[in-house]
């Protein structure tokens, strides 16, 4: 997990607190530089409330804790249970499936909408103002709204279900249907944000490149394939990373929309972590699931980064 990055400023790394108070001189390399003091608060804060808990998750995964007493050392019991549990493997598979499905569905849609709405035409501007409306609602609001819409008796599912093969509107109550609903709701919720990223990036592609291509007789599809896509490469990486790490926030959607049901059909790792920790009070085991999540999230992100080229990674991540 070594993510080597170049130090932001070249030159020898000086220990200590920089050069505060040194009289400025004309030579450029003598410019006063901020010392550790500037980063110390953020670093300390992050260490206590983010790095600490991440380490804590790992430590707790070797403990037993029911929330009532002190955590007690439990050896590898949690991990044995984790590796031996069919439910966990199912949930892991489902988590990856859901992450993958959401990525596959969202990326083309947001890419298309982003590029399309980057055009300066008046109608596009008006429409994209509408497209971004779901951005205004929180996950909780969206999940509850959709839950009502997906009600098979009084909501819209009765009418919409038959269109996709659920004649009685039993979408949320069906094993596959429930997963489909989550992909649908997540797409509805997050496409606007990713489209926004693509829109901004597409607007930064110099028009001269397209003009040159037009002169060469390239069609619209060709231009998209050979100009737009390569130019958006970094944004695709950024958006994908955000999507994949963000896929863990689907937890709220699942909790509110299906509560893991029907019959565990939407049990994903974050949801199991929550129920083990705060419904079954098996905090140690919940921490084991959480550790797996941290490892999964980090390695997936690193995988994208590596997959997409090491040098690119730096500029992308730094550009975020």
């Amino acid at each position: 997990m070594t993510l080597t990055t170049k130090a932001p400023s070249a030159g020898p790394v000086r220990r200590g607190g920089g050069v505060r108070g040194v009289r400025p001189a004309a030579a450029p390399d003598r410019t006063p530089r901020p010392g550790s003091l500037y980063i110390l608060p953020a670093a300390l804060f992050f260490a206590v409330f983010a790095v600490g808990p991440v380490i804590g998750v790992g430590v707790l995964s070797f403990m037993e804790w029911n929330g009532l007493g002190d955590p007690r050392f439990a050896g590898t019991a949690n991990w044995e249970r984790f590796l031996g549990s069919g439910a966990i493997w199912d949930a892991t598979g489902r988590t990856l499936l859901l992450t993958g499905a959401c990525w596959v569905v969202q990326t083309p849609i947001s890419l298309a909408i982003g590029v399309w709405s980057a055009g300066r035409q008046r109608n596009r501007a008006v429409l994209s103002a509408v497209y971004f409306l779901p951005l205004l609602l929180s996950s909780a609001a969206i999940a509850l709204g959709w839950k009502a819409i997906l009600d098979p008796n009084f909501g819209a599912a009765k009418a919409l279900g038959p269109l996709i093969g659920y004649s009685d509107g039993d979408l949320l109550g069906d094993t596959q249907g429930a997963l489909l609903c989550i992909v649908m709701v997540v797409t509805w919720q997050f496409v606007p944000f990713h489209a926004l990223l693509y829109q901004a990036a597409a607007r930064n592609i110099p028009a001269s490149i397209y003009d040159a291509a037009l002169i060469d007789g390239a069609g619209r599809a060709t231009a998209f394939r050979y100009i737009t896509l390569p130019q958006l490469r970094n944004t695709i990486i950024t958006s994908s990373t955000l999507m994949i790490v963000g896929s863990l926030t689907y937890f709220e959607t699942i909790l509110l929309l299906t509560d893991g049901g029907p019959g565990g059909a939407t049990h994903v790792l974050p949801f199991l972590m929550y129920t083990e920790g705060f419904r079954s009070y098996e905090m140690g085991f919940a921490a084991t699931i959480a550790t797996a999540l941290v490892v999964l999230g980090t390695s997936l992100s690193l995988l994208i980064v590596r997959f997409s080229g090491f040098a690119k990674m730096r500029s992308t991540l730094e550009g975020i």
Binding site: G56, L60, L248
Partner: peptide
């Protein structure tokens, strides 16, 4: 830290 899902740390 960018790659760490905040929700996973809820117990600590």
């Amino acid at each position: 830290g960018l790659a760490i899902p905040a929700q996973a740390t809820i117990i600590p």
